[in-house]
Simulated assay, not measured.
Amino acid sequence: MKVYNKLVRDKIPEIIKADGRECDIDVATKEEKYELLEAKLKEEVNEFLEDKNLEELADVMEVLFGLADSLGFSEEELIKARDKKREERGGFKEGIVLKSTK
């Protein structure tokens, strides 16, 4: 038996059962879910930093959507907030490095 004790995507138990295996799950409380999402964000960011691929980047985004939901915001609200900030302050496409100010 392998022990995980970590937050997984909603369909993982179905996928495990479809593979002919069994799994033991629990549903986190609201407070537990938020803490688990923060831990999951660290895990997914580290996986992205190791592999640097689109799949891992998508995992980071999914966790961000989960965190937004836990804070009472929709995916659309998160994207709108990002768009507003990008409109006001720009994005990171140009690679500008601030060296100093006077």
Rank of each mutant, 00 (worst) to 15 (best):
K2A: 10
Y4F: 15
N5T: 14
K6H: 00
L7R: 00
L7W: 10
D10E: 10
K11C: 08
K11N: 15
I15L: 14
K17V: 05
K17Q: 14
K17E: 15
K17W: 04
A18V: 01
A18K: 15
E22L: 11
C23H: 10
D24G: 00
I25Y: 03
D26Q: 14
V27H: 07
A28F: 06
A28E: 02
T29R: 06
T29Q: 10
T29I: 06
K30L: 02
E31N: 02
E32I: 10
E35D: 06
L36R: 01
L36M: 14
L36W: 07
A39N: 10
L41R: 00
L41Y: 11
V45P: 02
F48K: 00
L49Y: 14
L49F: 14
D51F: 12
D51C: 02
L54F: 11
E56S: 05
L57V: 06
A58K: 04
D59K: 06
D59Q: 03
V60F: 11
E62H: 09
V63W: 00
L64K: 15
L67I: 15
A68T: 07
S70C: 13
S70D: 03
L71P: 05
S74L: 08
E75I: 02
E76Q: 13
L78R: 04
L78Q: 13
I79M: 11
R82K: 12
R82E: 06
D83W: 01
D83K: 15
K84D: 07
K84V: 08
K84G: 08
K84T: 11
E87V: 06
G90A: 07
G91Y: 07
K93I: 11
K93V: 13
G95P: 01
I96F: 12
I96W: 01
I96S: 04
L98Y: 03
K99I: 15
K99V: 15
S100T: 00
S100C: 04
T101L: 13
